[in-house]
Design a protein around this nucleic acid. Structure first.
Lengths: 338, 338
DNA sequence: TTAATTAGCGCAAACGTTTGTTCTCAAAAT
DNA sequence: ATTTTGAGAACAAACGTTTGCGCTAATTAA
């Protein structure tokens, strides 16, 4: 019917009051400005009848409030980040805000473009799992005063708050678990080399191996993708001396490895053991349920959003850098050797 | 540094031209309005130096263009919809638009609220997998001329374009597969009863069973959730006459069933066969790789976005209702009986 | 030399809100 | 009878853009 958008001007006319009054009533400031019960009724009534939908853009333009925060993640198709998106979305909605989600696809250029798009939309805050070390734009935003919190990935040298998992500790735990079970030839298939979590996991892996006096390990791979896991596993299997255990740094990588192993008709954990970073409901139902290092995703999202809103309120947050404790979920993919 | 947002007014002042000229240059309309090379350079230069970020809100308020479309899905944590979100997002970005994603959580009220939020943000189009039969608001939007396309779920009686899978056919295929393998006692664990895909799948199941002369089937469940799958499987296992095969209407439901089966120490497919709707990479690596009906998700998203943009361009689309062919992916979860 | 054209740009009015200030009554206080 | 008060509401100026139209000076045509 009414194809033309209706504005508060229309409502004002129809109800015989000024647009000011309409605005105030519709914003719940009626009492504050003592608008009579009668006018209020009238206004709300006509608003409903005309199917009024407020124009956020106009409102935001004037007030500066957008009630919008942005979430940028490297890949929605990665279950780990999908879960994060889901959590953040819910958490933010609870506070009466809306989330706009950007998928950078692990591409710094896309990320920057997204960032600009988001800024142009006057977001009030930003939660981001930055891809690689693309810190320039983010730093600029931060310096301009935009509230930002990093999750999962972050920048060690920047003053930007983050909340993530203690990746070092997680990697140490995983590696020790392998070692405790008698493994000495362990390979690690890593993800994006210059991402902080990856670096720390590698450090943890290394340290745990060295601590155990083991020199026979190698680190391969360069991408948090299924393909990378597949490729590197294939290559590992061609070595003269095959590793007895694999530590994969994400569940996507683990999937790739599993595919490669299946193609070679190798069984987990009989032929080769696997432990991976990241949990996922499916992991429990796999041919061999995968032992993994699980991150407190939910908690991370909760805290990240909490911190973000603190910053948006100009409150100080005490601990700007937060690393949560990972846990190992013991399943069936690690064999005891010897 | 510069905490105050810079506007084209600032740029105009700095470069000694009018805001009109700045606007035109920054919008790539320089040639159309014959702005001199020199001015163009100057303007672009200062814009960059001042870190100018255009204010979409102001622009949209004036021009009506927002370059934004909305995607509303029932649950981001459901892998099926996560994939959809990922695809749509990418597809839309390719066209220079941005997607804002809403998660209705299968709740009509949330969905309506989201819808209003989105409208308030002046979206130009909407892709939605509506939860249940919450058609009122959507119909209203549609009548007001907002381009809308439904995916996965849709409304049979409404004139709103949709693209989905041929759910009936998929269900028939799945059921026949079970029957062809000798199963006669088949149970179907369904999802949301009044969602169109669910209805059609149930119809397909029924028809295929009746066609085969089989009367021994029952249909249980009422929700596309893991919990529902779990609960119903547990109940089914308590019947005096256990079904020999289960047809689950989503991968989430399948997961719940698997969990219940495991708890009862039953093996797939030795003790009970399963076929499910929806594919997922993980399904291939499960203890028993799950045979499934796979939907052409990617294609669905592609076409949906294509249609949406057609509508946004006021072009007519030939086939407003589109059902794509599903396929069966044969894996290992269906046993041949007798 | 004058008229017509064109290159290059600016004016100012929107867009739909929000909000600080001001106005108008009528009732209460003096 | 006048002033004060308070309830109820309206004015009008923003917010940062876009855009139809109009203006000037220089160039070209006549």
């Amino acid at each position: 019917m009414a194809n033309q958008k209706v504005s508060i001007v229309d409502i004002a006319k129809k109800s015989g009051v000024s647009i000011t009054t309409v605005s105030r009533v519709l914003n719940g400031k009626a009492d504050e400005y003592r608008i009579s019960e009668k006018s209020q009724q009238k206004i709300k009534e006509t608003a409903r009848k005309l199917n009024y939908v407020p124009n956020q853009f106009a409102a935001s333009l004037k007030s500066g409030k957008t009630n919008t925060i942005a979430l940028i993640i490297p890949s929605l198709s990665n279950p780990f980040f999908a879960e994060i998106a889901s959590e953040i979305n819910a958490e933010v909605r609870n506070r009466g805000y809306i989330t706009i989600i950007g998928d950078s696809d692990e591409n710094p250029d896309s990320e920057n473009e997204e960032l600009m798009q988001m800024e142009a939309r006057n977001i009030e805050g930003l939660v981001i799992a930055p891809c690689s070390q693309n810190w320039k734009t983010i730093k600029k935003l931060h310096e301009r005063g935009r509230p930002i919190v990093c999750i999962d990935r972050y920048f060690e040298d920047l003053d930007i708050p983050y909340v993530s998992t203690n990746n070092y500790e997680g990697a140490v735990m995983a590696t020790r678990h392998l070692i405790d079970n008698g493994h000495t030839q362990i390979a690690c298939v890593q993800g994006l080399k210059d991402s902080v979590p990856n670096k720390l996991r590698i450090m943890g892996f290394r340290d745990a191996m060295i601590e155990a006096g083991s020199k026979e390990f190698n680190i391969v791979g360069d991408d948090f993708s299924v393909q990378n896991g597949y490729k590197e596993m294939k290559l590992l299997l061609q070595k003269r001396k095959r590793p007895t255990a694999i530590f994969t740094l994400s569940n996507t990588i683990a999937m790739g490895c599993m595919q490669a192993l299946r193609e070679e008709n190798l069984k987990i954990p009989e032929d080769i053991s696997i432990i991976t970073f990241d949990d996922h409901p499916y992991l429990d139902y796999l041919a061999t349920p995968l032992t993994c290092v699980t991150q407190p995703t939910r908690e991370i999202c909760r805290i990240a959003v909490k911190h973000l809103f603190f910053m948006m309120d100009n409150k100080e947050i005490k601990t700007k850098q937060l690393l949560l404790k990972p846990e190992i979920k013991y399943r069936k993919s690690v064999k005891v050797i010897r």
